[in-house]
């Protein structure tokens, strides 16, 4: 038998909360449209922890070439890819329709379903093509 684990329940719950907070503290305070970012000298957004997240200009241009004017205006960056822990395998979800459409074009998917479900092989392709334009958010359903 091991040492007493009084309060372990609270400790674990607190650790879970802290872990989610630590992972998600880099999420952006305000997202910007693709057009707005293309006009900036140094395309970036502010993150919740007070830092910045920069975008690669070449990736912005790639995404701009795949979308029309209206979509460029409505697409907010970075694209939040939600990693949901309620699924058995690692699954990410994109709920924004414009973002889902843009990512489907990058992935060369024939059909665009909203929400767009992404699996590790998709994430690997996205990372190479538009790595700086996506951001992971870890969520947990009650």
């Amino acid at each position: 038998m091991l040492s007493s684990n009084e309060g372990l329940n609270g400790l674990l719950a607190r650790y879970l909360r802290e872990e989610l907070r630590a992972v998600n503290k880099y999420l952006p305070v305000r997202r910007k449209s693709l057009n707005e970012l293309l006009k900036e000298e140094y395309p970036h957004v502010m993150t919740r922890d007070g830092g910045t997240h920069m975008f690669r200009r070449s990736e912005l241009k790639l995404l701009a070439s795949l979308l029309n004017d209206e979509e460029r205006e409505s697409l907010l960056l970075p694209i939040i890819v939600e990693v949901r822990s309620e699924f058995k395998t690692t699954t990410a979800v994109v709920t924004d329709p414009t973002a889902a459409k843009a990512l489907a074009k990058v992935l060369n998917l024939k059909e665009v379903l909203v929400p767009l479900y992404l699996y590790p092989p998709h994430l690997a392709i996205l990372r190479r093509a538009v790595g700086s334009l996506i951001m992971y958010a870890f969520t947990l359903k009650e």
Partner: peptide, 27 residues
């Protein structure tokens, strides 16, 4: 039983993050 449930959820979150980080690292 409640603790195990919380621990398993924490494990899943960490494991998902580990998979994404490892993939990124390998590539």
């Amino acid at each position: 039983r409640r603790r195990v449930k919380v621990a398993k959820r924490l494990h899943k979150v960490l494991k998902d993050r580990l998979i994404i980080l490892t993939q990124e690292l390998i590539s």
